[in-house]
Structures are given as structure tokens and as C-alpha cells.
């Protein structure tokens, strides 16, 4: 598990000014930490697709945004992601909390095409099953943030996004503390 405070410190260190998104159980600690103000500034949206468009506008206006949403919201955001930050070649860190990762680990199925049986099994979260294939299909590079020792990947991912002038995702696989 990574500490929300460590992630916030890493975001500040790399110059992120705004965090656009929606809270979930995994990111609740981070949203609570930033509720009182300070940077990065929390920018709430009603649905995740809004987050990518708002982040694009923030970046055009000179800010350094990042997006923080759940993988379910990522699935909702396809056209917004494609038509804004990706098509605009905006260097953007996308922190995606990975609902269902632990269940997926238990099942052990991480490769191959998800089949209808697996997608409907009650002990498997289909959002988790579809996350990595979706990122691959969308051409969104990604890495994993499992625990505290992975926090430096925030900096590495932002650097990569800047180098490639494109969004880069960091999948947060466990609840922040």
C-alpha cells in the first residue's frame, strides 16, 4: 500500500498543480488529505470523461494537471480521452485506481482474451479484467503503483509523459492509506 501523503508529495515535487477526477475507496485517503486546500488543487467532476477534457483545458491554460479516476470511470471515458488529451498530445499523468485487482490476482487470469464466462463470474471484477487490455488498445502506456516503494514511479511517469508528449497511466492497485 502506498501512503496518500507520499503520492501527494511526489505530485508536488514533479510540479503537478491540479488533480482532476472523482474519489473512490482506493483514493479516498488522498482526496481527504487535499480537502483542506493546497496543491495539487482538487478539481471535482461528475463523470470521469469530463476529467480528461478539463485537464486538457487546464494544460492549455498553463497548469500542470493530473487525472485521478477509477478504472470503471476510465472505461466510461474512452472518447473524451481519445478526443482531448491523446489527440492533443498533452503530457498528462493519469492515476487510475484498479478496482478488482486483488480478485484478479486470486483468479490468476492475467493474459489472453477475456471470455464471456470469466467476464460474468461473480468472483471476478470485469472492470479489472478489461483494464489492461483497454489501455493497450487505446495506446495508453502504463505502469503499476502497488505500494510505497513504487511512489517514485509518479516522477518517472510524468517524465515519460513529457518526453513523449502524451498521456501516461499509473495503475494504483491497492487502497491508499
Amino acid at each position: 500500500m502506498a501512503k496518500a501523503r507520499s503520492i501527494v508529495e511526489a505530485l508536488c515535487k514533479v510540479g503537478v498543480t491540479d488533480l482532476v477526477g472523482l474519489p473512490d475507496n482506493s483514493s479516498a485517503a488522498l482526496f481527504a488529505l487535499l480537502k483542506g486546500g493546497g496543491e495539487p488543487v482538487i478539481r471535482l467532476v461528475t463523470r470521469e470523461g469530463e476529467a480528461f477534457a478539463m485537464a486538457a483545458g487546464l494544460w492549455m491554460g498553463g497548469r500542470v494537471p493530473a487525472v485521478l479516476i477509477q478504472n470503471t470511470g476510465l472505461l466510461e471515458s474512452g472518447d473524451s480521452f481519445r478526443g482531448t488529451v491523446q489527440r492533443m498530445r498533452i503530457p498528462l499523468l493519469c492515476l487510475i485506481t484498479f478496482r478488482g485487482y486483488a480478485k484478479l490476482e486470486r483468479v490468476g487470469q492475467r493474459s489472453g482474451e477475456p471470455d464471456p464466462h470469466l467476464l460474468s463470474r461473480p468472483d471476478v471484477d470485469s472492470a479489472a479484467l478489461l483494464t489492461e487490455p483497454t489501455l493497450q488498445a487505446w495506446g495508453l502506456p502504463f505502469d503499476y503503483l502497488h505500494d510505497e516503494q513504487d511512489v517514485p514511479k509518479v516522477n518517472a511517469s510524468v517524465e515519460k509523459a513529457r518526453r513523449l508528449s502524451t498521456p501516461v497511466a499509473l495503475l494504483v492497485t491497492r487502497d491508499m492509506t
Binding site: 491540479d18 482532476v20 478539481r43 467532476v45 470523461g49 469530463e50 476529467a51 480528461f52 477534457a53 478539463m54 485537464a55 486538457a56 483545458g57 487546464l58 494544460w59 492549455m60 491554460g61 497548469r63 494537471p65 472518447d79 473524451s80 481519445r82 478526443g83 482531448t84
Partner: peptide, 14 residues
């Protein structure tokens, strides 16, 4: 992305 211009403009405004 159709439907998202208000979000984009909001980002610029902020």
C-alpha cells in the same frame, strides 16, 4: 470529443 467542450473551456478558465 463531442460533448466535452464545456469541460475543456472550464479548464482554461480555471
Amino acid at each position: 470529443a463531442m460533448g466535452h467542450v464545456a469541460d475543456l473551456a472550464l479548464g482554461i478558465a480555471l
